[in-house]
């Protein structure tokens, strides 16, 4: 009785580990492949010299954007039906935000973007890019909250992959010269974030 159990258990344990490691291996492979494809798209879009294939081999994922880097170009589809291309807006200070409806701090700081949008009007561009949720979810959120600042879809995550981050909310202030001036990960309440972003935008506008 006991012996049979031991044998059974060991067989089961081995089978389980095999299954899990197989699953893990395949998953990593497909994830890698996907990143590969994304990498190609990014390279075609931006011609970024520093994101070389060799660097990628070493890093496995795209290089994180740093303060002082040229902001990688992208084109996003907005909730209002128009499109936004970063390179077409050079010469303007841009506040770029990555968010999702399930992300508490992201939703919490959104009044700050609305206030900044109304305050600066045409002087700056604000764009909040949703991270990989479907269009219906985003539409419903926008209808319910009534925000009027530009919000974009990124259903397949192409833009999110171009701007890799360990978490959202992830917000960048990009100067008129296309250089990333400030990067913020995480957020406190809307009031604190408003002051923080306003300070950064004013400093960037004065450059």
């Amino acid at each position: 009785m006991r012996n049979k159990w031991t044998k059974n258990r060991i067989v089961r344990l081995v089978a389980m580990s095999l299954c899990i490691s197989l699953l893990t291996a395949c998953g990593l492979d497909s994830a890698r492949k996907q990143i590969d494809e994304k990498q190609q798209i990014v390279n075609e879009n931006t011609d970024q010299e520093d994101v070389t294939e060799a660097a990628y081999e070493e890093e496995m994922v795209l290089k994180e954007v740093l303060e002082g880097d040229v902001a990688p170009d992208f084109t996003a589809n907005l909730v209002d039906g128009s499109t936004f291309t970063l390179s077409e807006n050079s010469g303007k200070v841009i506040l770029l935000n990555f968010w999702a409806t399930w992300c508490g701090p992201c939703v919490g700081e959104m009044p700050a973007f609305q206030d900044l949008y109304e305050e600066y009007d045409e002087k700056i561009e604000i764009l909040a890019i949703n991270c990989m949720e479907d269009e219906d979810t985003v539409n419903q959120f926008v209808t319910e909250t009534g925000y009027t600042f530009p919000i974009a879809y990124d259903v397949d995550g192409t833009i999110s992959f171009t701007y890799p981050s360990s978490g959202i909310p992830y917000t960048l202030v990009i100067g008129a010269d296309g250089i990333v001036k400030n990067i913020y990960v995480g957020a406190a309440d809307a009031e604190t974030q408003y002051k923080l972003y306003k300070g950064a935008i004013d400093a960037t506008l004065q450059e």
């Binding site: 998953g27 990593l28 497909s30 994830a31 990143i35 994922v61 994180e64 890799p164 360990s166 978490g167």
Partner: peptide
């Protein structure tokens, strides 16, 4: 590296 894995799994 202090980064989070964000792949398919």
């Amino acid at each position: 590296k202090g980064t989070i894995y964000q792949g398919d799994i």
